[in-house]
Design a protein around this nucleic acid. Structure first.
Length: 431
RNA sequence: UCCCCGGUAGCUCAGUCGGUAGAGCAGCUGACUGUUAAUCAGCGGGUCGCUGGUUCAAGUCCGGCCCGGGGAGCCA
């Protein structure tokens, strides 16, 4: 008897196969009984019928409960009456373990309950499809960079330096060396590495102790960051645009069945093509004010502002050259207007908001020292970072893409917590 | 941190004017040879988040605390 996965079941029509998996649900009509069976690669309806299934195996159906683990064998046929295309007539049923009182029933549950049972919720179809899309997004990004000669640089999780701002760091005692912090970004290390390899990227978890309680924040999230020597801000935007189009195309090609299962409208994704709209902060402010926003020059864009702006366009947009004081210390000052910096945020369409933050980095030693001091950051931990401006400093730029926000956008999800297997939020550390 | 909402059966919820607890689903028992969140009949199931107060009497009114959800700020 051939063993196989449900994803390959179409190749085995007419054959006898063995499937190993779990009971998703059961239905019964007396002498004909149905198991909705899943194996991690898909679902199939398995049928037990009096006269066709051996008596002993037929009787085992009575013990089956939701999520019981079983191994089934029998012939596969195409079956229009089944929900999938195929069906198995069970000739042998082996019970591995009977699950008792599985908490997630095929009825509605509250978010809090589902998050408390996240370890089991992962098995539900919707969650299954979301994580499949996440998997493809990450694969697409790795492939994109690999094909273009970028070198993967693994940046440290435990750091002594500050990345974005001291107020949002998770800290821990590091032996006798004092405080260590969980990384908020790998950027500073990438800047060092791009002076060695030219084009580099990193992919890892980042941590922000921000007490955010919104659908768009997690305390632990994954970020893809890239850094390129001799690249300016325009080149940075070109790169982001190219990469994002590649990712969307990849996902539409490789994961459309999952998007369809999630009832994602594919039309808005099909219009994600170059070129993206690019508007300066100076242009955006009056535009927003005209649309009713309270924003004043100097303010960062609020969530509502991002929504207003993205709904004016059919594809992602860049907003570039923000006021200096609304952004991080390492961004390069704009030579044409020192009140602004050379940076760009990429806003996803359909109201999803910022998914990428990028900038040209300050490569002038004196300006960088001045910026660190202006932000009231200690100079000493940045000694090595300042070295990069002493030994062959060059213009360079990079960006960070929030993986969860990208997953939420591509899947059409309202909340970030379903885009990562085990979300870390303000009030949840388990499971 | 601030603002809003909630916590009653395993789950989702109802509970009127303060008078001592209800439904659907799940579970269990049975019927049914093509079910699609199957259907039908029956059965079991409660520290009303915790705590203090008002009252003859509190799930219900008041205070404090705990937990969760939504939003703001901040960001990816």
């Amino acid at each position: 008897m051939t063993e196989c996965y449900i994803e390959d079941i179409g190749k085995h029509v007419g054959e006898q196969v063995t499937l190993k998996g779990w009971v998703y649900n059961t239905r019964s009509s007396g002498k004909v009984r149905f198991i909705i069976f899943r194996d991690g690669t898909g679902m199939i309806q398995a049928v037990l019928a009096k006269g066709e299934t051996p008596e002993e195996d037929f009787a085992k159906f009575d013990q089956l409960t939701q999520e019981s683990s079983i191994i089934i064998s029998g012939p596969i046929k195409e079956e229009p009456r089944a929900e999938g295309e195929y069906e198995m007539m069970v000739k042998k049923l082996e019970i591995i373990q009977v699950s008792t009182d599985y908490p997630i029933t095929p009825k509605e549950h509250s978010t809090g309950f589902l998050m408390a049972n996240r370890h089991l919720w992962l098995r539900s179809t919707r969650q299954y499809h979301i994580l499949r899309v996440r998997n493809e997004i990450i694969q697409a990004i790795r492939q994109y960079f690999y094909e273009r000669g970028y070198v993967l640089i693994d940046t440290p999780i435990l750091t002594g330096s500050i990345g974005e701002g001291a107020s949002t760091l998770f800290e821990t005692q590091y032996f006798d060396l004092g405080k260590a912090y969980l990384a908020q970004t790998g950027q500073l290390y990438l800047e060092a590495a791009c002076m060695s390899h030219g084009k580099v990227y990193c992919f890892g978890p980042t941590f922000r102790a921000e007490k955010s309680k919104t659908r768009r924040h997690l305390t632990e999230f994954w970020m893809i960051e890239a850094e390129v020597a001799y690249m300016d801000l325009v080149g940075d935007m070109d790169l982001q645009e190219d990469m994002l189009c590649y990712v969307v195309e990849w996902v539409l090609d490789k994961a459309s069945e999952h998007l369809v299962a999630l009832e994602r409208d594919l039309m808005p994704l099909l219009s994600v093509k170059k070129p993206f709209h690019r508007i300066s902060y100076d242009e955006a402010v009056p535009k927003l004010q005209g649309a009713g926003s309270q924003i004043q020059w100097g303010d960062d864009l609020g969530g509502e502002d991002e929504t207003i702006l993205t709904k004016m366009y059919d594809r992602p947009i860049f907003v570039y050259n923000y006021p200096r004081d609304a952004k991080a210390f390492y961004m390069k000052r704009n030579p044409e207007n020192p009140r602004t910096v050379l940076c760009a945020d990429l806003l996803a369409p359909e109201g999803y908001g910022e998914i990428i933050g990028g900038s040209q980095r300050e490569d002038n030693y004196d300006y960088l020292v001045e910026a660190i001091q202006r932000y009231n950051l200690p100079l000493e931990p940045f000694g090595w970072y300042l070295d990069l401006r002493k030994y062959g400093s060059v213009p360079h730029s990079g960006f960070g893409l929030g993986v969860e926000r990208t997953v939420a956008w591509l899947c059409g999800l309202p909340h970030l917590r379903e885009t990562i297997p085990f979300a870390r939020t303000l009030y949840r550390l388990y499971p």
